[in-house]
Simulated scan of single mutants.
Amino acid sequence: MIRILPHIRRIKRAQKRSIISLEKNPENPETIASDDFLQDLELTLTTMGVSEIGYATVSEDEIFQQKGILYTNAIVITAPMDREKIDTAPSLDSSDTSFASYAMLGEIVNQVAGFLRTNGFGAQADPALGGKVSFPNLAEKAKIGVRGRHGLLISPANGPCQRIAAIYTSITNLPVSSENPHAWIRDFCKTCGECARNCPGDAIDRGTDPGSEIRRPFLDAKKCHPYFEDRHGCGVCIRVCPFHIQGYERIRAMVKER
């Protein structure tokens, strides 16, 4: 706990800032962003350490109960965790990189929300920990990747070794994609099951069709949470995932050869 406390403090500060800063939103925010502005925004996010960027529209039924968002237009971002530390999971090192990524993304979404407000747009930061929606679901909807059997997002840049956050904005012309080029991942996960076989809490669904429904639970939270909380993290499902070990492109090449 002593080791991850600095990250937790950063996470708490980001969560608090995301709420306090809402009063800085313009009364009549702009709704249309130029292509140049969006390109500059993506470049800025990349220089801040963001791996992938996607866009999605949030529906009302995707928002957690007793939560709320100001805008339904979402900018979804991911940031990597340290692969070498994740390879030691479950451990203090793997917990350290997990909480460090949460903290980093919390700070980034607040900075981006501030940048958007400065340019006349409304914005609401949603830090990576304690989000108002399911981030893996939202990232899949934003076409960044697809949720694997373990329920985590699998994407080209990081496989499952990442954290996710979002900024909700008044910008209505975000470049939302209509097709997800990563849908093949779901078929691979049907015949893999490494995460389920290695889960120390036996919490991952071992069925033959994981993820066929958008709301289908991948994990039994009653089994996952006690193990996770007792060790302040886990990460085994990430460590054993073929997309983490071999990488997205190699797995895709193998699938094409079959």
Rank of each mutant, 00 (worst) to 15 (best):
L174A: 15
E213N: 10
Q111F: 11
D87S: 13
R149I: 03
I63D: 04
Q15G: 06
T169G: 12
T46H: 11
P6Q: 00
K16P: 01
T44C: 10
C241R: 02
M48D: 12
P156A: 06
G151S: 10
C234M: 04
F135S: 05
T44I: 09
G201Q: 01
S101Q: 05
Q162R: 14
P160T: 10
D230G: 13
P217T: 02
E23H: 06
G114T: 08
I251G: 12
G106P: 11
S177V: 09
L92A: 05
E42Q: 13
N180E: 14
R186M: 09
T78W: 13
T46V: 11
D82A: 05
T78R: 13
G235H: 01
P127H: 13
R231G: 11
I238K: 03
T46P: 05
D187W: 02
L105C: 08
A128F: 12
R250V: 14
L38I: 10
A203H: 00
I144M: 12
F121S: 02
C195D: 07
K24H: 10
P200T: 05
R239V: 00
C161E: 07
A113K: 10
G114N: 15
A196M: 01
I214G: 01
E213S: 15
D36R: 07
G211N: 06
E257G: 08
I251Y: 07
G247E: 03
R206T: 08
I214P: 04
G211A: 02
S95W: 01
A89R: 00
R206D: 12
I154W: 00
C241P: 01
G233S: 10
V50L: 12
R186K: 14
A139Q: 06
E194Y: 01
V146H: 02
Y227G: 00
R231E: 11
G247P: 06
C199M: 02
P136Q: 00
V58S: 05
I167Y: 10
